[in-house]
Amino acid sequence: MSMIRKALAWLLCIPLLAGARAGAAAPGRADLPADSLYRITPLQLRDQDGARFDLASLRGRPVVLGMFYASCQVVCPLQIETLKRLQRALPHALPVVLISFDPAHDGVARLHAVAAEHRVRAPAFWLARLEHGDLDALGAVLGIAWRALPGGGGYSHNVVFNLLDRDGRIAARSDKQDGQDADFVAAAKAMFAAQ
């Protein structure tokens, strides 16, 4: 009986050990730095193609994180173009994730339309909506705030980009509208140089 149990335990251990090895490549939350954004759970997103992913799955590479809303006519389109320009200015691929702060209106179809209009594609450039998680807390952590205008006329909001390092720590933040933030670009380049 106990032999069988031991044998069973061994059998069960094999996938567990395999899992532990896989875990070394994609570690859980336990070894994240205390100030990592990936410690905030759950933050489950859905992108412009309908694909679901957890924000923490971005771990392992630098990424730019911002927020927007799809029906925004002036600032948000500019924001997307600014970030495309930033991506072109860098020697390595730097993925961008823009999360809608208006998920009630910004479904997948709408995100898809905006992505098509600006010719951006995942996994280089995600437009995403939060499916599960605390949107207000995420905004506060990112230094992004928005306020619905009375009468349903859109939002008053700020525009802030955050550069996350591979462990989800905020390494740089920019509120420059023209993408000419030298400190932000330098921080991104330094991050690639360190890899």
Binding site: Q73, V74, V75, W146, G153, S156, D175
Partner: peptide, 14 residues
């Protein structure tokens, strides 16, 4: 945080 006390506040219209 969304009360925007400075001139940095923005709106869709500009």
């Amino acid at each position: 945080a969304a009360m925007f006390p400075n001139a940095d506040a923005r709106v869709a219209g500009g």
